[in-house]
Write a protein that binds this DNA or RNA. Structure first.
Lengths: 297, 297
DNA sequence: TCCATTTGCTGACTTTAGTCAGGTAAAAAG
DNA sequence: CTTTTTACCTGACTAAAGTCAGCAAATGGA
């Protein structure tokens, strides 16, 4: 990795945590402990389960409980058992609590404004654009790709979303029964593998690998959530699948795809897949690709 | 101000404080209080005066003293009177302290690397470029422009730097005695005004205003430190001087400039100054500008 | 039905961060 | 040669943040 790049990231970290960190502590403190402000903010207008809050704010159970009691005592929120499971408790803001959150919101707004205010319009636009880019790429960098159980809840959600999407995009829709199989049961060792991409624990992409005979494997079920496209996630899923395939003895990877999936074709072409003749009778496929010469690293 | 811009800044703040803020606290904590880590880092390999540390870290005198004692007790640093002034005390790292800072340094390096690692080279380059842009513009946004005493230490330093620079840049050098006067004494009310631009308390730009007869004022001593150019500081100094001039009854602003100061001419042209005939006998001036119709807002 | 697990709460801590009111020595000002 | 200011330190606080062990209710599976 380039040393200059790392130096720039470090300068950025220092500059931004100083400027923004300190400012937002001041702004959002509002005379109340920061942890309480963050908690109010995180509960938000719709309320939230205590366990969700614990996970999102990474707080100790005891500490969080105490914070909730303190805010409850001041009439900012109420905690009740959740309807579906009485062990779980749900925190909701009172009217007074919502007013407080509104005030926090205004402060956060003012903080953002105070960063932009000294700049001229041209500089503002540049700053905002650069911030959007940094945010986008930090999101991309936080995505984790890992092996997962294709029968698990997250995997099923991804696969369902994938099937719904191609049913919409393919001319004439899509019926899994008429296509080539890729059951969850096939996508586990020793007959295959399955990868999930997660951001902050939420699954937003997947890809499957199905092993065939004589060192040939097939890529199936490649999908990325629409909200997360353009972050290079498909690329990383593909790389992970290739590495996994190679480790499982695959030397040649194949895949088929529909003419409506333009981005997918571009992805495969970029990664050294070349178009070949039809190798299966999948009625939904219009293009067939192959990449030879995979090696375990 | 554009609401969308503010929303983007807020999203950025959230994303960055979550991703980077939390990460760097974890990384740089290293089992020791964060304040101590920051202090070690700030002392650095060359050591630093205690008062400098106090200013840079914005710490209470007593608190800082205690932090220094704690690190001293663990043999990480030594504090001695400074040679030139025995009230001032200078903190320097011991060998053990330097090893600690090296470790912190490695961690910070690793943190930066961990942000870049999941990305491909193209994304990395984009991220690093966007970070540099954000950092640059946040610096610009943190610059404060305010009236200052032109005889004060900071102002004198800026004016001296200005004179040295034009002595270098003008063909044949520059001799203040042969030019039009702009003594500090003239640049205070009621005969003038003086503005300083500061970043984190450090002066890095100035501009003077000298009042003449019949609502005519003259801009003098416009200068920005080379390290801070390209941030739009001159623009903000000029705007501040114009506002001040208008408030003091000026309706027409003039200035002269040397042919070697190309950026300055562009600045004035951009701001509605039009070139006029020679209005003084300054031997160093090659261009004369004027802006009419100033109004107090 | 019983028992392990999950979820959240309480009490009793510790550590970290930060503030404030003096006090002392050195240097600068008068 | 005083007086004032500067720079730093110490002691005595407080508030915020966080940790840990143990407990009790609800739940789900054996």
């Amino acid at each position: 990795m380039d040393e200059k790049q790392i130096q720039q990231v470090r300068r950025f970290n220092r500059a931004v945590t100083r400027r923004i960190g300190v400012l937002s502590d001041d702004y959002l403190g509002r005379g109340r402990p920061l942890a309480e402000s963050r908690l109010l903010f995180e509960i938000g207008r719709d309320g939230a389960d205590v366990r969700t809050l614990r996970a999102r704010l990474a707080l100790d159970s005891g500490y969080l409980s105490r914070l909730l009691r303190a805010l409850e005592a001041r009439g900012l929120l109420a905690v009740q058992p959740a309807p579906h499971d009485a062990r779980v408790r749900r925190a909701t803001l009172t009217r007074k609590g919502r007013r407080e959150v509104d005030a926090l919101d205004r402060d956060s707004h003012a903080l953002a404004g105070s960063l932009l205010a000294p700049l001229g319009e041209a500089q503002r636009q540049k700053l905002v654009a650069a911030m959007a880019e940094v945010e986008r790429l930090l999101r991309a960098s936080a995505v984790e790709v890992a092996l997962a159980d294709p029968a698990g809840a997250e995997a099923r959600a991804c696969i369902d979303a994938y099937l719904r999407e191609i049913d919409e995009r393919f001319e004439g829709g899509f019926d899994a029964a008429r296509s080539v199989s890729a059951d969850p049961a096939e996508l586990v060792p020793p007959t295959g593998a399955f990868m999930l991409a997660r951001l902050d624990g939420e699954a937003l992409g997947c890809g499957g690998l199905k092993l065939g005979a004589r060192g040939v494997g097939e890529i199936k079920r490649m999908w990325v959530a629409p909200s997360a496209r353009g972050l290079g996630i498909a690329q990383r899923l593909l790389e992970a699948l290739e590495a996994q395939a190679a480790a499982m003895g695959v030397r040649t990877l194949r895949l088929d795809t529909n003419r409506s999936l333009v981005e997918a074709r571009a992805l495969y072409a970029r990664n050294g897949y070349v178009e070949i003749a039809r190798y299966n009778d999948n009625p939904y496929a219009d293009h067939w690709f192959e990449k030879r010469g995979l090696r375990p690293k």
